[in-house]
């Protein structure tokens, strides 16, 4: 993977170098490119999270990166002290929130953008759901709690000023992908920013898939639940008898 990455680096570096003279007299012709070291994350039997290396080149302005998964509705529950024990007693449903959301930026990039533009481009937690303008204090409390829980699980990450842009215009960032990442399709967006304006947009995809035996188990469990149930019974009975057979034989 390292060799693969460095060759991409070379290509990008060449692109920047080749591009540099032309940008001197062509104002609009700026380089902005982003790529991933791996376009696919495979969830194998021993999967315990991954590193997602995102890198690119920028010749003008600052950069913001956003990674988003699919949207889901969430039920957020709050425990209260009732009759001496802690019971889930309040619930609030939040609609169309990404199951995974990361925003990262180079130094000072986020502060440049006015709130309206951040909302338009879904940058920052306050832009991830259209429900936010309608929030009262109650909804806000539940939303903030969801964000906090997602952050603890590594499924939401707010990483301002973490993208280092070198003098050459090359940048890179390593995003930690937790083991509990939901399988599915992810969209990675990159924006280049200058003086509070968005110069260029770039979009690419990342897919997270279960592979191998685990993928088969999940597929069977969800597509053929009855068959899966019967197989689970057969596997259990068989392994119980097998274990018994092995140990009793050794005793004899």
């Amino acid at each position: 993977m390292i060799r693969h990455t460095s060759s991409l680096w070379l290509i990008l570096l060449t692109a920047v170098l080749l591009d540099a003279p032309s940008s001197a007299y062509a104002q609009d012709d700026t380089t902005f490119a982003v790529d991933l070291a791996d376009r696919q994350i495979s969830i194998t039997a021993g999967f315990n999270g991954a590193n997602l290396l995102i890198f690119g080149a920028i010749t003008r302005g600052d950069v913001i990166l956003i990674i988003e998964g699919t949207t889901e509705n969430y039920q957020v529950r709050k425990k209260k002290y009732v009759g001496g024990i802690w019971i889930n007693s309040e619930a609030h449903k939040l609609h169309s929130l990404p199951n995974f959301y990361v925003v990262a930026s180079s130094n000072g990039a986020l502060e440049q953008l006015p709130t309206s533009k951040r909302i338009d481009h879904r940058i920052g937690y306050d832009a991830i759901t259209q429900e936010i303008p309608t929030f009262d204090a109650h909804a806000r409390e539940f939303f903030d709690s969801l964000v906090r829980i997602k952050e603890q699980d590594g499924l939401y990450q707010f990483l301002p000023d973490t993208i280092e842009v070198a003098n050459s215009g090359l940048f890179r960032i390593n995003i930690q992908i937790p083991a509990a990442i939901p399988p599915g399709d992810y969209v990675i967006r990159a924006l280049s920013i200058e003086n509070g304006e968005i110069l260029q947009k770039f979009q690419t995809a990342l897919s997270v898939n279960k592979v191998g035996f685990g993928a088969e188990i999940y597929r069977a469990a969800h597509q053929y639940p009855k068959l899966y149930g019967i197989s689970a019974i057969i596997i259990s009975v068989f392994s119980g008898l097998l274990a018994n057979f092995i140990f009793n034989r050794r005793k004899a």
Binding site: A221, P225, Y228, G229, A232, S236, G240
Partner: peptide
């Protein structure tokens, strides 16, 4: 097992097998 698998999809046979391996 059958009904948890077919109604709730909550039987993780991988988990059960690992636990069983230790248990026997």
């Amino acid at each position: 097992t059958f009904f948890h698998a077919s109604i709730n999809q909550t039987v993780d046979i991988m988990l059960a097998t690992l636990l069983l391996f230790g248990a026997v």
